[in-house]
Design a binder for these strands. Structure first.
Lengths: 161, 161
DNA sequence: AGTGAAACGGACCGAGCAGTCCGCTTAGAG
DNA sequence: CTCTAAGCGGACTGCTCGGTCCGTTTCACT
């Protein structure tokens, strides 16, 4: 790949990340291109549709979550592992409008399977140790994440077993 | 007002209520008109802009909330009054996408002042009775409402003092 | 430096949106 | 029944958006 093409690709991805995080998925491709300093034709050459661009940005975000999940799984204390991951995800959602608005889309991205598996394991451990209420499934608990962005302590207090 | 005009006005408001609740504020005026069974010119004769139509729908929703607030204030037990109102609002938000998407707009509608005043009083009573945690303001607590739509019990457990 | 392929970006297109307008229809008073 | 003003709805406009296309520029290899 030519050097200028690689540079523009990075600029576009960075701009898209910022635009979608701040403004949500309805930010126009023109706006992304403007922030990247390229024509919008350049964006569409790399990503055939706006949806493909969004997928790329969401994918990078999910990559970060996979790392967080691995860190949480290596934690010894079941509650600390669960709560730390929960807080980190809540913070990620708080800082990224696109993530909240694209919940369903994320479910279809490959990284999400890894994140979900880790989340289920963290919940299983905490519930087995009786530090997490057992009347909710892991899926239900993680539906609370977008909610927990502002006041994670309140939600975690409610979840404690 | 002519009888047919009144009938169409009711149809439009009903259709708008349903459309915005199910599909959010981005549902087109054409869609509302179609569901009401009128031309979209008829919608714009009654409401000069789409925003005015949305305000009318949100206003009716807030009217319902005012009634809920009055009911909650007449409750004897401070926790029951607060929790009942909290649950009812959470349910209302869960059933209405437009309400969630128009938080800021609602703040400018006249009914909201009444609802907020009642909410503050309910929180004050519950906090004075030491049944509600005191490290959050009333405004902060009610920011949790859109979150609480799916699992209000978890949130209320977290809020209990 | 010369050259050909790769990359660029803005003009362009069609679709869908909010909002306007006007010729036709209909309610309902006299 | 007649007549008129109120009401109607769909054609129309202007705008923004996602996506395409092509003449021009730039890279990088020889």
């Amino acid at each position: 790949m030519r050097a200028d093409a690689q540079r523009n690709l990075d600029l576009v991805l960075g701009a898209a990340q910022e635009c979608f995080a701040e403004g949500g998925v309805d930010v126009s491709v023109d706006e992304v291109a403007r922030r990247a300093g390229v024509g919008h034709g350049t964006v569409f050459r790399r990503f055939p549709t706006k949806e493909a661009l969004l997928d790329a940005v969401l994918g990078k975000e999910l990559d970060r979550m996979v790392l967080l999940a691995q860190g949480a799984l290596s934690e010894d204390d079941p509650w600390d592992g669960f709560a730390g991951f929960f807080r980190a995800l809540a913070d990620g959602y708080a800082r990224n409008r696109a993530l909240v608005e694209s919940k369903e889309r994320c479910l279809e991205l490959p990284q999400m399977a890894v994140v979900q598996e880790a989340a289920h394991e963290l919940v299983r451990r905490a519930q087995k140790a009786r530090v997490l209420r057992r009347d909710l499934t892991a899926d239900e608990i993680f539906e609370l994440i977008p909610a927990a962005s502002r006041f994670p302590d309140v939600i975690l207090d409610g979840l404690r077993g």
